[in-house]
Nucleic acid binder design. Structure first.
Lengths: 135, 135
DNA sequence: TTCACGCTTGACGCTTACGTAAACGTAAAG
DNA sequence: CTTTACGTTTACGTAAGCGTCAAGCGTGAA
């Protein structure tokens, strides 16, 4: 009775797959690459909130064009234990590195958006010209 | 003598490769996929400003995580001929689509940057605590 | 002419990120 | 007990994006 306070908080592989619109194969593959480590109940996988969050982070990393290896390194930073000084310094270093990459990507995006705006303007102009020209 | 006015404006494959830090193989591969169409002088490839620009766009697309197929469609929009109405409408449609994707990516980047800032703050705090704690 | 240099075309190999069966387990429902 | 639903592992297949030879051509300098 006392666990009625904690509603589920675990998911099956199919539930997670449906929620994030990926295949079971994909989720198992991520586990294979060490990105997810679900609990086992018997042989079946049971996913906890931590796994769910990590999956969301993985998919975000993919949208950003990172490889799974890079994503692994990034995601692992999120729930790194405090650790010793060297480890912390390393982490801060990694963060700086990733930030630089992301800002480069943001630059790319903004440039591309501008370019697209120009192309769009040209198209609109051509279209208007075309429609006026044909009476 | 009269072409001394127009400084080169063409590049060899090696020059282009050096400039953008890619291999010859990569450039030829892009040609194979229809992304580049250099002139031929004998058997050798000669690249014009147009090719150079397209290569830059391709690499930017790659940094943004688009596949070469998608990049082909995007880059081709840039130097599309005016064309007929249907074509123009299609192009405008594509632009809207790509813009949506890019704005999603930008969202992802900003969220990730925020997340990294949090992780960084935690690290800094841990580090400070560690250094104060050890006398 | 010979040599080196830069370029060329295959063609096979490799990694990433899954897709796609095949064959089997398990637990509830009919 | 059989079906149905959901899960499992094993393993081969594949598309993308190149790396990496191998072998040959063209051209300018020695």
């Amino acid at each position: 009775m006392h666990n009625s306070q904690v509603p589920a908080e675990t998911w099956s592989i199919a539930e997670l797959a449906a929620e994030y619109d990926v295949t079971l194969r994909t989720i198992r593959f991520y586990e294979d690459r060490g990105l997810l480590t679900p609990e086992r109940r018997g042989t079946a996988r049971v996913y906890h909130p931590r796994d769910r969050i990590r999956l969301a982070l993985i998919l975000r990393g993919k949208r950003l064009g990172f490889s799974l290896d890079e994503i692994a390194r990034i995601v692992d930073m999120y729930d790194a234990e405090p650790g010793e000084e060297g480890q912390l310094v390393y982490l801060l270093d990694q963060i700086t590195h990733r930030r630089t990459e992301l800002e480069q990507r943001r630059q790319d995006i903004e440039q591309t958006l501008q370019d697209l705006a120009e192309v769009e303007a040209r198209c609109q102009a051509d279209l208007t010209a075309l429609r006026n020209g044909r009476t």
